[in-house]
Amino acid sequence: MTIHSEITLGPVSLRITNLDQSISFYRDLLGLTVLEQTGNTATLGAKMTPLVVLEEQKNSRRLAPNSVAGLYHFAILLPSRKELGFVIRNLIANNVDLGQGDHLVSEAFYLSDPDGNGIEIYADRPRETWSYEANGDVKMTTDPVDWQSMLVEAGEEDWYGMPADTVMGHVHFHVKSLEAGRAFYVDTLGFEVATDASRMKALFVAAGGYHHHIGMNLWAGADAPKAPGDAVGLDYWTLVYPSASVLEKAVAAIDASLYQVERTEDAVYVTDDAGITARLVTK
């Protein structure tokens, strides 16, 4: 089964230790809007598009980076280079440490939230400018970003936070093995391999010819242990199908596999062998 070309990604749910602190980070530094707040949880997004669900668990442990399977980063995709420039301008003004990478297909910046959850914010280059290896893999690399020209594009205009057409672009995980990752994300969910970077201990898969919706790596070590439930980190990521019938076909394929499906009133959940849970929904 090949995954439907019109799937999109929805919000990630994160375990964090201090809700007020995390809301301030995502709202004031990244420009997200608080969409809902109840008790120890809050949902933030770009205008009305939910991107991050925060659940406060005060006694959660913060683990050493790259020590367990689970979230490496989630990646927020802005609609233009100029909009990315606004965010970068704000982060620089607030002395936030940033990593960076020009990946040919996109320009990206990297940071962590107060609990160490990895975040990428990026803008894509036009798809017609992407190039490909002889085997069809999307060509990606990591070069320095020309961030100065990005700030010039942003200029001195007022910033009103992340725009409504900001979306969750991709998610990237530490997995136990690339073979197990391929078995779940390709053979079961139906994503197609976009770039096989196994020499770098990584694999990138996608739907509809995108450069990647899912990244996976072995940078926490082969057979990395699952993240414990009392640690900060990812609770689930969300995969959005275009219709109920498309979702049911996907669930039938999962039911025929080794993975267990859990149904609730409004979603289907399935967890890979690394302990990473996907929440499957429709638009």
Rank of each mutant, 00 (worst) to 15 (best):
H174L: 06
H174M: 09
H174I: 10
V175T: 13
V175S: 00
V175M: 06
V175A: 01
V175W: 04
V175Q: 00
K176E: 10
K176G: 14
S177L: 11
S177P: 09
S177M: 11
L178N: 01
L178E: 06
E179K: 13
E179C: 00
E179W: 04
E179A: 11
A180E: 15
G181K: 01
G181C: 08
G181Q: 07
G181P: 04
G181R: 11
R182I: 13
R182S: 07
R182K: 15
A183K: 15
A183V: 04
A183E: 13
F184L: 00
Y185A: 00
Y185R: 00
Y185D: 00
V186A: 05
V186G: 03
D187L: 05
D187Q: 11
T188S: 14
T188D: 00
T188Y: 12
T188C: 08
L189W: 08
L189V: 02
L189R: 02
G190H: 04
G190I: 00
G190Q: 01
F191I: 00
F191N: 05
T195N: 15
T195C: 09
T195M: 14
T195H: 09
T195L: 15
D196W: 04
D196A: 02
D196V: 01
D196T: 00
A197N: 03
A197P: 03
A197G: 09
S198W: 09
S198H: 12
S198D: 11
S198F: 02
S198G: 03
R199H: 12
R199Y: 13
R199L: 15
R199S: 12
M200N: 11
K201P: 05
K201I: 07
K201D: 14
A202M: 15
A202G: 12
L203M: 15
L203G: 06
L203A: 03
L203S: 09
L203I: 05
F204A: 06
V205S: 12
V205Q: 02
A206M: 07
A206W: 01
A207P: 09
A207F: 06
A207R: 03
G208S: 14
G208T: 05
G208K: 13
G209Y: 10
G209I: 13
G209F: 14
G209D: 15
Y210N: 02
Y210I: 05
Y210A: 08
H211F: 14
H211K: 05
H211A: 08
H211Y: 15
H212M: 14
H212N: 11
H212R: 14
H212F: 10
H213N: 07
I214F: 12
I214P: 06
I214Y: 02
I214A: 06
G215C: 02
G215Y: 09
M216I: 08
M216R: 01
M216N: 03
N217E: 05
N217W: 04
N217G: 06
N217C: 09
N217D: 08
L218S: 06
L218E: 07
L218C: 08
L218N: 10
W219E: 02
W219N: 03
W219D: 04
W219C: 05
W219F: 07
A220N: 05
A220D: 04
A220L: 13
A220S: 15
G221K: 07
G221S: 04
G221T: 00
A222V: 15
A222I: 14
A222C: 07
A222Q: 14
D223C: 05
D223I: 11
A224K: 04
A224N: 10
A224M: 10
P225S: 10
K226N: 01
K226F: 07
K226S: 11
